[in-house]
């Protein structure tokens, strides 16, 4: 599944209640090469169940509080929603986070490699499969670091 497909999905609690919010981004741990957290915002529109899958998603809930749940707390990520396990621990204060989408990409040789357009990942294991940048595809195994300035990837 692609990051842009997940962004904007409603986040549903295990008890079957209304949406907790909508996904704003996915936090990536470049060391393990996997998604570590799902971040979502409980904006007003998110509460009434608008998934915002037509590109509005990330912006719908800007007024709301952003929260994050570890990937272990995610039960399923399907086409329609992100469903959490029972008693999923939501972290009120988001950890240091750099959104991969639109982030600058640098090769470790110091040469720019465009920006991140999208990321493919396995929804069962959370492992990243590939990154799609404005300069082409980058295998997920080449990630070296993700900081405030750039995503650093191994050159060749």
């Amino acid at each position: 599944m692609l990051f842009t497909e997940v962004r904007g999905l409603p986040v549903l609690a295990a008890d079957g209640g209304g949406p907790l919010g909508t996904v704003t981004s996915l936090t990536v741990d470049v060391v393990s090469g996997a998604v570590s957290h799902v971040r979502f915002r409980d904006g007003a529109l998110g509460r009434v169940g608008l998934s915002g899958r037509v590109g509005l998603s990330g912006r719908i809930g800007r007024s709301g509080r952003e929260r994050a749940v570890p990937w272990d707390a995610v039960d399923t990520v399907a086409a329609g929603a992100v469903r959490l396990r029972a008693a999923a621990p939501c972290e009120g204060a988001p950890r240091a986070h750099h959104d991969l989408l639109d982030h600058r990409v640098l090769l470790d040789t110091g040469t720019g490699h465009g920006t991140v357009l999208d990321v493919a990942f396995d929804t069962r294991t959370a492992r990243l499969l590939a990154l799609f940048t404005t300069r082409g595809e980058v295998p997920a195994g080449r990630l070296r670091g993700l900081g405030d300035y750039a995503l650093v990837v191994r050159a060749g």
Partner: peptide
């Protein structure tokens, strides 16, 4: 020119 760590921080 920016000085950037391999961790991606300038």
């Amino acid at each position: 020119r920016p000085v950037v760590t391999l961790g991606g921080d300038a």
